[in-house]
């Protein structure tokens, strides 16, 4: 149907408009339906998450803490990589910045945790913006190795500034935070702190990806040239994406440091970076729920593989290859794979 024709044939116009409106609102309703369904699922998951510690032994609660922490780290990386399409291999450097700033402030300078937290976040966000700057000039492989190089530089800087950071040995004796007078000394109580922050950041990321920022990010990812020509300030979006990476990793770093009461440069390595990246990719790029699933599955997998002793890493590597080759869309693609099958089967 053409616009000029439609203008001539007024009744047809109206008829078609009504039809369009009908399907439109029907779809809209379908969408709102699935939205509220998603809300129920989230509420359910939060309930399960809150109850899990009661069923966990001391080893399991440790793993649970890590799972929830890695969910936060993965979602943050997913925002930059999966949504905004920026090859950010410096996430782990922002993680280190958060952890070390808080560790130094609370030990050497005896800051309160709740004061050290925002300062540490600021530091890691600032580092995120700084390391994000090359993205304004370089792309793809070039950006990947630039951020990786800077991330290695950050790690070496931590090692070299040994008077402040404890060098290769790291910092010990990082105090546990307290919450309204309750000292979160056990991993059970600490779990709720990590859980609260992850939930908060998850809800924030959900808000972001569903609205303006998320759309701008994906526009930049899908076609930065078109995005520019449509008035989107691509540079600003890219820097914002790196700032988010700094925010999520920074909070994660602080929580990590106070969870173990100990930080060392050995944590914030290339391998760690690749582990977080694997969670994001295996879960599904550009899908925050995928990152949650990815963190759960990869951490459980990592623990399960421990029984194979020397061979665990070999199996782990092989599994990554297999997953990437056979399921390139990540875990979230299982759903669409299934749907396509169903369609093919019915027709």
């Amino acid at each position: 149907m053409t616009l000029n024709k439609v203008a001539v044939d007024k009744t047809a116009n109206e008829r078609m408009d009504n039809q369009a409106e009908l399907t439109f609102s029907l779809n809209e309703r379908k969408l709102t339906n699935s939205k509220s369904k998603a809300n129920y699922w989230i509420a359910f998951a939060v309930g399960v998450g809150l109850l899990l510690p009661f069923a966990a032994n001391t080893y399991q609660i440790h793993i649970l803490n890590l799972v929830v922490l890695y969910i936060m780290l993965a979602i943050g990386l997913n925002l930059t990589m999966g949504y905004c399409g920026q090859l950010n291999l410096a996430h782990v450097a922002f993680y280190a910045a958060g952890a070390y700033t808080s560790a130094i402030l609370t030990t050497t300078y005896q800051f309160n945790f709740w004061l050290a937290l925002p300062i540490s976040i600021l530091v890691s966000v600032f580092l995120g913006v700084l390391i994000g700057l090359p993205s304004l000039r370089v792309r793809t492989h070039y950006l990947a190795i630039a951020t990786l190089g800077l991330s290695i530089a950050v790690n070496e800087t931590i090692v070299n500034l040994d008077t402040i950071t404890g060098g290769p040995v790291g910092i010990t004796g990082i105090p546990k935070p307290s919450f309204f007078g309750i000292l979160l000394i056990t991993e059970y109580s600490y779990y709720y702190l990590v859980f609260a922050f992850t939930l908060l950041l998850f809800l924030f990321s959900r808000l972001v990806v569903k609205h303006g920022i998320g759309r701008s990010f994906r526009a930049v990812r899908d076609d930065h040239i078109a995005a520019q020509s449509l008035g989107i300030n691509v540079a600003k979006q890219q820097i914002l994406a790196f700032a988010f990476s700094g925010l999520f990793a920074g909070v994660g770093g602080v929580l990590y440091a106070h969870m173990l009461s100990y930080v060392s440069p050995d944590t914030f390595t290339f391998n760690e970076m690749m582990f977080i990246l694997t969670i994001v990719v295996i879960g599904g790029l550009g899908n925050i729920y995928g990152s949650i699933a990815g963190a759960v599955i990869l951490l459980i997998l990592r623990e399960w593989l421990l029984q194979f002793e020397n061979w665990q890493q070999v199996l782990y590597g092989a599994m990554i290859v297999a997953l990437v080759v056979f399921m390139p869309g990540g875990l979230v693609s299982i759903k669409s794979l299934f749907q396509r099958r169903k369609k093919a089967g019915s027709s």
């Binding site: 690749m274 990719v281 070999v314 590597g317 092989a318 290859v321 390139p328």
Partner: peptide, 16 residues
Amino acid sequence: IYMMLGTLGIGIVLQN
């Protein structure tokens, strides 16, 4: 990104 991860997986296997 998938290439990176795939080749990295092979690297992990060789490494270990």
